[in-house]
């Protein structure tokens, strides 16, 4: 049985500040994620998507199974569906918090259950996602929680020659500061979290504007933000990492540098 020591061990692996460079991916390979979801297909999708991020994913399909697993092992993050066949997934949050585990928790529930969200965040969940969600969104939230919980906030994210400090909203290209708006910063972070993946316009728009996205009829405004971000990064000498995939979305990638 793993004790609390395990996670401490992992933390000690982490370097912070400028030491932390290209081997970010390797660090995250050690991250253990438990997904509790009764719908097998949804569970598989999430696991498949997250596994390519290099996480060690484990699954549970019932509350009982989930509780057993969080008691037996230490996870860095637990993704729990609230509507489980044998009970309320909020029990997982309660257990983790009484266990004083430092695991992050994302709760997932059907939309329109405002109460679930309030209660969930109240008893110590880190984040809340409503079904249906974009896998890229789950990925970004998961990374953000892992960052906050595991790296005590002083973590920098490095992608090629871009360096981002989420807590201070600072971004650098080749160590030169880039002035970004909040939206552009969030966009960049979302891109880096989902690097080398095709992300749809819908998922980006929903990530940036949340539920209010229904108020707009088209994604033209998204195009403006992306253009601005691209221009600001390239002005500082970065190559064009953002590849537009016609009518589908974007891909943020260092391998397919176009510019």
């Amino acid at each position: 049985m793993f004790g609390l020591g395990d996670s401490k061990n992992w933390s000690s692996h982490l370097r912070s500040g400028k030491d932390y460079t290209q081997d970010q991916k390797k660090e995250e390979e050690a991250m253990k994620v438990l997904i509790i979801e009764d719908e097998a297909e949804l569970l598989h999708s999430s696991m498949e998507y997250l596994k390519t991020e290099g996480y060690v994913c484990e699954d549970a399909t019932t509350l009982e199974d989930g509780l057993r697993k969080i008691h037996s092992y230490n996870y860095d993050c637990v993704v729990a569906d609230i509507g489980l066949p044998d009970g309320n997934g909020l029990k997982i949050v309660e257990e983790l918090r009484t266990k004083t585990s430092d695991a992050g928790v994302i709760i997932i529930s059907a939309r329109n259950s405002l109460d679930d969200k309030i209660v969930g965040l109240d008893i110590g969940a880190d984040d809340y996602l409503t079904k249906p969600f974009h896998l890229s969104e789950l990925n970004a939230r998961l990374k953000s929680i892992l960052r906050r919980r595991k790296f005590s906030g002083n973590k920098e994210i490095v992608f090629s020659d871009i360096r981002v400090i989420p807590d201070t909203l600072q971004a650098f290209v080749k160590d030169q500061p880039v002035t970004l708006t909040k939206k552009e910063f969030d966009l960049l972070l979302y891109f880096i979290s989902n690097r080398d993946r095709i992300i749809t316009k819908e998922s980006i728009a929903e990530h940036l504007w949340g539920d209010y996205i229904d108020a707009v009829d088209n994604f033209d405004f998204l195009y403006t933000h992306i253009c601005n971000l691209r221009r600001k990064l390239m002005d500082r000498g970065a190559p064009d990492y953002i590849r537009t995939i016609y009518r589908v979305g974007y891909k943020f990638s260092g391998n397919e540098i176009v510019g």
Binding site: E39, E41, S45, S46, A110, K131, R197, I198, T200, V248
Partner: peptide
Amino acid sequence: SHEIQTPLAIIRNKMEILLQ
């Protein structure tokens, strides 16, 4: 609604994976 929501979520997630 609950039953419809789940298959729809599955379809969407699979599409997202397929896209990759």
